[in-house]
Structure formats: C-alpha cells, structure tokens
Write a protein that binds this DNA or RNA. Structure first.
Length: 392
DNA sequence: CTCTTAATAT
DNA sequence: TATATTAAGA
C-alpha cells in the first residue's frame, strides 16, 4: 500500500494539524472480530476463527465505495476543517502526489494495538495496489487538487471506530464531544464534523442498546422471581409471582453486570469485539448484549413489547457483505497521531476497565458467513435462546 | 462558538 | 446503506 499523503494543513488550526504516521502494515491478528452469535458460525467451518475474508476480490471489496461518483474529492483543502484526507473514499490521488512526503515524523506508540494503523489511504490507492480502479469515484475532478468540493466520505473502519470508542470512553460518555474526541483519537484527517456525525450515530445506537438492555434486565428479574417461586414442593405448579412495581419493566438502568464468564470459550480463539476499545475486552460482552435481549420468559407474562427486532441492524454496516477489505483491517486509512490519547489512558487507568460498557458493539457483517436471511430480523433473534441462560 | 438533534442529501 | 451536510436551537 502506498502511503498516501494526507494533506492537511489546517489553515484553521481548529481541527487537526496533522502529523503523519508511518505505516507498516501487518496483519493484526484477530483484530476485530465480531462475535455475532446470531450469525457467526453458521456457515463457518472450523477455521471460523480466521478472518474469513482476507482475500476478497478487490472488485467486490470496493464495490461499495462507489460513492457519489466523482463527488468525493479530496478535501484536502477544505478550509474549515483543514481536513486531511482521510480514509477518504474517493479521494484524490493527485493530492497525495502533490503533497508528497510526510510532514513530521513521529512515532506512534500505541498501547495494545499496533496502531500503525491509520493512514489515510484512499481506496483508489488501495486499489491501485490491487491493480484495480474504482468505478466512478476517481474519475472526475481530478486534475486540480480538487480543492474543495465535497468532503470525502470517511470510511469508519473497525479500527477507526475502535479508536473512536476508546476516546469516547476515556472522556466519559457525557464529556465526549466531538472536539475532544478528535483530540484523543489522534487521527488526523478526521474533522470535527466527521466525529460529530459518527457520534450522533453512536449515541443513537447506544440509546437503543441501553433501552434494550433495560428491558431485558427487567425481564431477567422477573425470571428470577419466577425461578424462586417455582422452587416449591415438587408437583406443585408455581403460582404466578406477584411482580412488584419496582420489578416491573422499567426504562432505567443500569443493567446488571454480566455474570462471570465461564472459561467456556477455551476452545475458541478469543474473538474481539468490533469497536471495542481494548483488545482485552471480554469477548463475551457482545454475547451478553445478545443474551440480555429479552427472551420470552414465562408463559403467563408476555413481554410488554415484542423485542425490538431492529437492534442488530441498527448499527450494522452493510458494507462489505463478503468481508472487510484486508487493507482496512490493518492499515487503516487515517494517520494516527502520536496519540496524546495514550497519555489519557494512563491518566484514567480506570477508564480502560470501565470500558466494559457494552454499549457499543456494532456487529459487523464482515464475519457473516451466510448471507443475511431473507427475513431480516428473524434469525438473529432466534439465536438468543440458543445460549445458556445462566444467571439470567 | 460549540454542541446536539433532526432532517435531508449523496 | 453509511455518511455528510445543513439548519435550528441550546
């Protein structure tokens, strides 16, 4: 892959001045695997723990990049943001050429991940690597340094998202505002607007998840009540327990913490959760999210509202139906800056741990082995009951 | 001015 | 579809 050069130069200074990263690309093993029990394993054979798609046909991979043909030009100059290019899709190669080399040399050290990641790679470049050319995106608006047309669309790769989440968690959900997130992420070529936009979606998604969790939690409580009630003399059918008002479904939180994880997944290679900040993140988090989803507990009490069928689709990226482009899983498109964030992490050691908040674990279809069922929501929901219910 | 949100455009 | 852009309001 070629490095591309970000051209940033933020006149405004407001958003990022860039630094550039070096890049090495290496396979980052298991970096982001999504545990989507709904569809995981369905079609995988044993090596399911291997990224299924490292080798996809570039054509397919980038099919989705299309993007408003020709519109996305690099914004290299876009004044207000000083934005760099980012992961930009459909960015201008020319810009890269013009800018040429790197600006500053900084080494990025990253905690767990080799953050070597983020480069601002344009798909075009990636493609060039692969010898492919994007259909439309590149064509128009090239000649000049395409100053500013439209901002290139940012490709929120799992890695990028992960950093985003990490930043958000470091800051705390309530203090996470675009500008701060941007700082922490240390990824140049992102603008405040990019972040804001992503943040908007992120919050929205989180909201949904929390709501679901709350709902599920309330049900699990009922379940417990029910279980307790059913411990009567054998043969005696349990009576319907009274459900106290405070056990009634509430919209409140917090959801009960996930029970200790049985080291069940020994046989498995730990799967990382898409978007989770730390590699150490318990892989199960995601599983729990799903488990928390309401399952019909008792015959006599139907859930007040049918479990929302949407959740999985909410945050899902429908891109890369066949997997994520290799290039994306590793060298991610934007340059990582020296990570002021690293410091942040140290400052708030607890943050990392606290990062358990399962709120944000978008599934990524990338690991979907089978095409989504025709009936959109059905299958994943069904999976819910397939797991041991354990404590809940 | 920055942030948030919703609506709408691409 | 995912993301950007815009506008309105805090």
């Amino acid at each position: 892959m070629l490095a591309v050069e970000p051209l940033r130069g933020a006149p405004n200074g407001d958003d990022r001045d860039g630094a550039r990263g070096s890049f090495d690309d290496f396979a980052d093993e298991g970096l982001l695997e999504d545990i989507n029990f709904g569809d995981l394993f369905m079609g995988f054979d044993d090596d399911g723990d291997v990224l299924p798609d490292l080798e996809l046909d570039p054509a397919e991979i980038f099919a989705d990049f299309s993007v408003g043909a020709g519109e996305d030009v690099v914004s290299g100059a876009s004044t207000d943001e000083g934005g760099g290019i980012g992961t930009v899709v459909g960015a201008a190669q020319d810009a890269a050429a013009a800018e040429g080399e790197r600006r500053e040399e900084e080494e990025e050290e990253e905690e767990e991940e080799k953050e070597a990641s983020s480069h601002c790679e344009t798909p075009a470049q990636v493609m060039s690597d692969k010898g492919r050319k994007p259909p439309a995106a590149t064509a128009p608006a090239k000649g000049s340094s395409s100053q500013g047309k439209r901002k290139a669309k940012v490709d929120w790769t799992p890695e990028l998202h992960r950093r985003f989440v990490q930043a958000v968690e470091q800051l705390g959900i309530d203090k996470a505002v675009p500008s701060r997130i941007l700082e922490l992420m240390g990824i140049d070529c992102l603008t405040r607007h990019n972040i804001a936009s992503h943040l908007q979606k992120y919050r929205s998604h989180r909201k949904h998840l929390l709501a679901r969790e709350a709902e599920a939690a309330s049900w699990s409580q009922r379940r417990q009540v029910y279980a307790a009630a059913s411990t009567g003399p054998a043969g005696v059918p349990p009576k319907r327990p009274e459900i106290s008002p405070w056990l009634a479904p509430t919209i409140g939180f917090p959801p009960p913490p996930p029970p200790p994880v049985p080291q069940a997944h020994q046989g498995f290679r730990p799967l990382h959760v898409w978007g989770h900040p730390t590699g150490e993140a318990p892989p199960v988090v995601h599983m729990w999210l799903r488990q928390l989803a309401p399952r019909v507990p008792v015959p006599w009490a139907a859930p007040p509202t049918p479990p929302a069928a949407d959740p999985s689709s909410y945050w899902q990226q429908q891109h890369y139906p066949r997997g994520i482009p290799h290039a994306m899983t590793q060298g991610t498109p934007c340059f990582a800056q020296p990570l002021p964030a690293a410091a942040g992490m140290q400052r708030f050691p607890a943050a990392a741990a606290a990062a358990q908040v399962p709120g944000i674990v978008p599934h990524h279809p990338m690991y979907r082995a089978v095409p989504p069922p025709t009936s959109k929501h059905a299958s994943s929901q069904l999976q819910l009951d397939a797991h041991p219910v354990s404590a809940y």
